[in-house]
Write a protein that binds this DNA or RNA. Structure first.
Lengths: 319, 319
DNA sequence: TTTTTTTCTGTTATCGGTAACATCGAAGAT
DNA sequence: ATCTTCGATGTTACCGATAACAGAAAAAAA
């Protein structure tokens, strides 16, 4: 492995000049820059991350804290992780995954946090490294998230376009910002269209939404659309509607939210609001690295729109 | 952050002695060891991973190569990843995730590879760092895997116990060792019980196994058990059996394989052969780190038994 | 022209560890 | 009693980079 010194020798300059070409190119003559670049290419020079880290007093490690209980795995995270990992790699950063079990966390340059609930913030405050949260929050932390409200608004809009007469919202019974935003999106859009609102909140498990349908089956007349806060809930709705003999998508429509894995497992495929998790993961990385390299910046968020991905649980738009 | 020197000063010894206490305690007097340990505790000394890495010419990074196409995410990996990540953290190693997209891989101390197919081995050969594969292979690489054969043997045995008359194997149409082992497990056990073997091989997608049932529905008389090479296949079988009005689990039984996420999504829950992925992840890490620290050792594998996790797709054993 | 300033490049010390060699006292050998 | 040998500790140099300072040449000001 060639080092800075090797490059320096080859280019007939000092190590410092080579270092400058890499980190502060504006402080070096064009002429030398060219020579150094030539030497680097010729030797196929790759900077030694560890040495750089040591000299800069960095660890080149970002910790990903997954605060959610992992007893039932969210496939969600896998895509996110890939997005994060790829982006970190671009910047020569390593990843360390921290789950609720091993709170004994070592050193790092910054954190990306996901799955946090309100009760976690007190603890988060004690971490004094740059940090970006995955999911909107009201505690002033930088975050990356989907535009939850707009997302559900789009769903309602689409439901109206499809002429579903009743539009029900199956939400989550947690008081977290993302859940509230989704509900707000529903309420907003319904009000805008002057439609009667109907909100149900359940624990985020498919069997609970299935039970809900079973127990309230007679209430729902034909031509109803269920907009669900998660694909998990949508899955339960779909399953039980079929069980009860409901015709999907003609009599009953379903729109889920998340678009990771579950929508593909369902039969028929769910129409869902798909988040671009790998982009979001990459964005989270960029935000933390910004903070690390620039000291304390003001809050900066990245908000992504979801994409309405059509499956078999909504009928075709009439032309 | 206290350093080696700080500890050395406090204990009135040289840096080297402190270093020895940590890395070669047998070369230091009991007396000094105690003093140094006291000093370390008092200062709450944590070794600087980067410095150590630099001095040892290590990167303290393990790359996890996921060679599988990630267009449909395997929730499988999430658990594995958690297992790997936790174990790496214990040893102050960072993780870098490499997917098929970014084959441009930087430096690392070793690799854990998963999702490889026969065509990948040529390329794997070019990597000359310590490597452990996730999944059995016939190329002489160290690996970690479930005992695929025994696993399916257990399934057959259980099916016999439950008095299912016909036992069918729904396998995967790939020529990979793990798939072959599972099939072999079926054939072995069936032969042992003197039962008629019936093997079907399909692409690993639930809709293909569903289609299979739809098209061959009349062939399967009641009292049949389907042993599936994956939960994905089991899911499709379950779905379509219900669609056709088959009674699960009394008339038709299903046993899946993997026990990650999908079995919980299915309705009813799948009876499945559960792999302990986090343990396996940890084992993979231990194997690579062994290789890294000990130079080229002979091949070493870690094979884990699966656990038969009962769900609603098999009937109760008669007492 | 001389002095001052600016711009660029090289030197030195340092980040926090570790290997290799040097040193020194005590135990064993002769 | 002298010479080895050995075990325990300290010294020095180095891993591969960077910041801070120093120095030299070029540009600007006098």
């Amino acid at each position: 492995m060639p080092t800075l010194s090797d490059v320096a020798k080859k280019a007939n300059v000092s190590k410092m000049t080579v270092s400058r070409v890499i980190n502060h190119p504006e402080r070096v003559t064009e002429e030398l820059k060219i020579m150094v670049h030539a030497a680097m290419k010729e030797l196929n020079y790759k900077p030694n991350v560890m040495a750089k880290a040591l000299a800069n007093n960095r660890t080149q490690i970002i910790k990903l804290l997954i605060l959610e209980e992992m007893d039932y795995v969210e496939p969600y995270y896998m895509q996110l992780l890939v997005g994060i990992a790829n982006e970190l790699e671009k910047h020569s950063y390593g990843l360390q995954l921290v789950t609720k079990r091993n709170t004994q966390i070592g050193d790092s340059d910054g954190y990306i946090v996901c799955g946090m609930r309100e009760t976690d913030y007190k603890w988060l405050n004690t971490l004094d490294k740059p940090m970006v949260l995955f999911g909107e929050n009201t505690h002033g932390y930088d975050f990356v998230d989907s535009d939850n409200q707009k997302s559900i608004e789009k769903a309602v809009e689409y439901g109206v376009l499809l002429n579903y007469e009743t539009i029900v919202f199956i939400g989550m019974d947690v008081n977290e910002p993302f859940a509230l935003s989704r509900e707000k999106g529903y309420r907003n859009a319904m009000e805008m269209y002057g439609l009667k609102q109907q909100v149900v909140k359940l624990e985020n498990r498919s069997r609970f939404s299935a039970t809900f349908i079973r127990e309230n089956w007679q209430e729902f007349n034909s031509n109803t659309l269920f907009i669900c806060a998660t694909d998990r809930l949508a899955l339960g709705i779909s399953r039980e509607l079929q069980e009860q003999g409901g015709n999907i998508p003609e009599e009953y429509g379903i729109i889920g939210h998340d678009g990771v894995f579950l929508d593909q497992i369902a039969y028929p495929f769910l129409t869902t609001l798909k988040q671009s998790l790998d982009e979001m993961g990459a964005a989270a990385v960029q935000l933390v690295l910004n903070k690390i390299n620039a000291g304390g910046l003001p809050q900066e968020n990245a908000i992504f729109e979801t994409e309405l991905k059509l499956g078999g649980t909504t009928r075709e738009p009439s032309v």
